[in-house]
Every structure is written in C-alpha cells, then in structure tokens.
Computed example of a mutant assay.
Amino acid sequence: MRKPSTHATMSVASSTSFPSSSRPLTIRLLAIVLLALAPLIVFVPSAANACACGCSVFDVGGGLLPQEDDHGGRVFTEWWHASQNRNWIGSSRGPADANNDKRVVTDWVTAGLQYMFNREWGISIRVPYVSRAFTTDTGAPPDGAGIQTFNSRSIGDIEIMGMYTGFSSDMSTGIIFGLKLPTGTFTAQGLDRDTQIGSGSTDLILGAFHRGMISGDNAWQYFTQVRWLQPFLYQSAYNADANAVLLYKPGYQIDGAAGVVYNNLYNVAGFDKIAPLLQIIVSHRQRDSGPAADPLNSGFDRIMISPGIEFTKVVDEVNKRVLKFYVDVEIPIFYRANAAINDNGSMGQLIAPYLIKTVASYNF
C-alpha cells in the first residue's frame, strides 16, 4: 500500500498597470512563473502542504509576488485541487492493477498574508487546510480488507517566507527564502508517509523571480520564477505494516515556470482589468529515502502547460484597495515517473490528468 504520486501549484503572474487615468493606483500583481532551472539549495514538495505528489508546483506560476508601488499588505486565499487516478510507469501510462494505490483526491484551502515593509523587504505566511481521500488495495482478507478509502483532514504544513526586491527600482526581480514547518499531520491511519497531508519534515525554501516587458507599450509582458524546496530535519512515525517506528525522508523538489501575459484589456465585463496568460511549468522531484519510503516508486520529471487569467477590480483607487481573482488549469504534456516493483508487489505512481489553482486577494 504505497503511492508515490504527483500533483501540481500557485501564484499569480500578471502585473496591474492601469491606463493613465488610473495610473496613480498601479498595483500590478506580479509574476507568474519561470522555467525550472538551476539548483539553489534543495527543496521538498509543497508550499504550505507537503506530499510526494509534488504539490509545490502550485507555488509557481500566476502569483502573489510584490509589484512596483506595491506597499503595505495583501490578504489572500487559495484553492488547489488534484485528483490522481492514473498509474504512471516511466514515461507512459501503466496498468492500474500494477499499483496497489488507486486514487488520491486532494483539496487545499489556504489563507495567507503578505506585507511589504518598503520597496525592498517583505514577508508572507501561508496556512493551508487540507482534505485528502486515499483509495488503496489493502489485500484480500484476512490480512487485508480489499479496496478501501482512507480520509485525512487537517491543517497542512505552514510556510513563513521573506522576500527581497531591491535589485531594481520597479521591483521586477526578487528572491524568496523561508521555511516550511512540519505542522501537518503525518500519522493518519491508512495513509503511507508519502500520502500523508504533512511531510513531517522542516524544509528550506529558496526561490527567485523576474518579470519584464516584451512590447514597449507594456501590453505584453513575460515572467519567470523558480522555487527550490529542501527538507533538512526529518521525523519518524509508527508504521503498522512493519510494526515499527520508521524514518521518512521526502526528496527535494525544484519547480519553475516561464510565461507571457497580455496586459492590455481594460474595463471589460465590469472589471478594471483582465489579464490572460500562458505558462510552461517544469518540475523535478528527487526520490524519497528512509525505511518508511518507497524510493523505487518516487521521484519524477514533469512539464505542464497552463493557461490562466487574472481579473482585477479597483475598490478604492486613492488608498490602493484592489481585489484580484486568478485561476489556471495545469495540464501535463510530459511525465517521467520512477517505477519498479517494490516489496509489496506494487509498481508505479499515481498522477493527475490536470490540476486546478485559484487565488483571490485583497490589497490594503
């Protein structure tokens, strides 16, 4: 009963620059994402919620990064959804009966706060609540009970991050750094360590972003972002199959994105601005390790294409009160999953045919 799998992440990428009449209130919400490249310092799966599914991919592309003239605070909420129901072996779909695990359905609802102290320094905190349903074949009676679904719901792994945006006057380039804390449960009954809501690890978060103009009139912009998660403190938990307390070490994960935004649709359908975008997201997840892990069936490389759109409504132009709503769909176009028959006779990783991400935010 083991399921190394994959999912996908979040952040809005368009900037908000209003026509000359609204220019004083320019609150461009930055950056979607960049193509993964470069090692930084190692990361694990997930921002605010860890899992071997690779959910940290939601943390790049379309996002909540600082913009030029973006001072003060922003509160936001995120909803991510993934239904992992396809068994993947290598670079192609494998037979469902090769994998004891059948389905993982997860919803993340995150509340967050970002605050920019000035044009150079800021901080953010994200607190997720996670609901997961894990369906697996426990084996025939009397030792097992056949195919069963186990549910787990709890606060996920909280993230606390700082950011520096002082490389340029328009805050177009920045770095992020912080920690993912082991606040999510990793002892839920019926779930393996790689399907628990929390990883049980403390992770270092490192990342960088950049945005720029493609056309001189600012109608077309590009963005890039990379994020690296590295677990460095691990925790053991009781394993019922082995009747022992075993250590689990999730593998690091690097996610990156790159995309373009059309930034010139003003006063449409009651919104002050609508910004469609198209991005490519790339992920590398290292194999898990430790006695509680399934290194043969964990770790992957993935490329996804993701169309998205952001809606902006100015509530109070003088005081820069702005509402934003962002949504995208992330669709794998390439997947390579490590897979081999393990001690339980299971092989493959469950992947999702698509991922959904939404973000709603309010600047104050």
Rank of each mutant, 00 (worst) to 15 (best):
A82T: 07
A31E: 12
E78L: 01
G62L: 08
Q84I: 02
T16W: 08
C55T: 05
D97S: 14
A13M: 09
R74I: 00
L37T: 14
P4V: 14
V57T: 11
A98Q: 11
M10A: 13
G90E: 05
R23Y: 13
L29G: 14
P66M: 10
A48K: 00
V105F: 10
P66G: 09
I89A: 04
G72D: 04
T77F: 03
S14N: 14
G73H: 00
T6W: 07
R74S: 00
I89C: 02
V75L: 05
D59F: 12
S92E: 11
S83V: 05
L30G: 15
M10L: 15
P45W: 04
N100A: 11
D70H: 10
V12L: 11
F43D: 10
I41A: 14
A96C: 01
G54I: 04
W108G: 07
G112P: 06
F18T: 02
F43I: 13
N85G: 01
A38Q: 11
P4Y: 11
K102P: 05
T9Y: 09
S5I: 07
A98P: 00
P19Y: 08
F58Y: 07
L40T: 09
L34M: 12
T6G: 15
L35G: 15
S11D: 11
C55V: 09
W79C: 00
W88Q: 07
G62T: 03
H7K: 08
N99G: 02
N100Y: 06
A48W: 00
N49D: 09
L40H: 10
N100D: 06
R23F: 15
I32E: 07
E78T: 00
W88D: 00
T26I: 12
R74K: 08
C51E: 12
P39D: 08
P19K: 14
M10F: 14
P45C: 03
W88A: 03
G61L: 07
G62Y: 06
C51S: 15
G90C: 05
G90D: 03
A96W: 00
P66K: 09
A96Q: 07
I41Y: 08
A8T: 09
I27K: 10
A52Q: 08
M10S: 14
V57M: 07
A38D: 08
R103L: 10
G90M: 06
V57F: 10
D59N: 12
I27T: 15
N100I: 06
Q67N: 15
A31M: 12
L29M: 15
T106S: 14
